[in-house]
Design a protein around this nucleic acid. Structure first.
Ligand SMILES: [Mn+2]
Ligand SMILES: [Mn+2]
Ligand SMILES: [Zn+2]
Ligand SMILES: [Zn+2]
Lengths: 136, 136
DNA sequence: ACAAACTTTAGAATCATTATAAACTACGAA
DNA sequence: TTCGTAGTTTATAATGATTCTAAAGTTTGT
């Protein structure tokens, strides 16, 4: 089974029609071995520079949000003027280099176990994310 | 020594002139025992509802940024469309209730020690912030 | 082939934030 | 105290990421 039909199935299973735009966005996001971090504009450039089929920004926004809903992407909590996403959806954390403005993965194995002792009544933990800021 | 003259000194020591706008912003931020979280708009409402001296949004932005630079405020890393700040500048962390969209402090004592095993050459750790998302 | 539901898109709208530049204020020196 | 300068405030405009709109295009099941 080739990648395109895997994406086709992935999309169908999520209730999303496998349009050529969505397949192409899947290719840009999930073809590579390595995971990566990106802003919407990064992704638009990746896609629209390397191909003749141009995808509108609106579609890229729509698709990234849909993929985030479905759990195929994660958004990284950061104090920036634009949203950053991650194709690495495993439980993991981040370095943020404030000088170079770069994100670096911190695998779960790079961080000791995190214990939260405080409980809030009627609420349960959905995720725990650690942001480690780095400077020179 | 009253609060106003404490703020006066605090501002002078930071190289900021103690204008009536900045004193008033200090009062809104630092008079209370309790620390709190706020957006720029929250702060503008707090100030401009409870007083006859209206302060322009531009000044509030400028002052909040200046205070953040000086370390009198912290910005909280969050995926929201607006910046959130914290008058609690101690080392601490946050719950974010995704249903109620509320921030709750997690004191350092509420979180076990955090160990980061990965090192990046030439960089040092500036801060470690944990965001724990809560859901119902 | 057809109708319905879904999708894409250009362009407009929104809105948080930043920039501009003119009027105002604080402050030190004379 | 008066003056000059640097710093500050403000209304307003500009910016830019994101979302909305509605019309045109596509996919899907029958
Ligand atoms: Mn943010
Ligand atoms: Mn953000
Ligand atoms: Zn990552
Ligand atoms: Zn806090």
């Amino acid at each position: 089974m080739n990648l395109t039909s895997i994406y086709d199935k992935k999309l169908r299973n999520s209730g999303l029609r496998p349009t050529k735009q969505r397949i192409k966005i899947c290719e840009a996001l999930f073809d590579s071995e390595k995971t990566f971090h990106f802003s919407i504009n990064d992704l638009a450039n990746i896609i629209n520079n390397k191909s003749s089929l141009k995808i509108s920004l609106a579609t890229i926004y729509n698709t990234v949000h849909a993929f985030k809903e479905k759990g195929y992407l994660k958004q990284i909590p950061l104090n920036t003027n634009q949203a950053y996403f991650d194709t690495n959806i495993s439980d993991h954390h981040h370095f943020y280099d404030v000088n170079d403005k770069k994100l670096i993965d911190l695998d779960n194995s790079d961080v000791g176990p995190i214990n939260i002792y405080k409980k809030i009544n009627g609420k349960k933990i959905k995720s725990i994310e650690v942001l480690v800021k780095l400077e020179d």
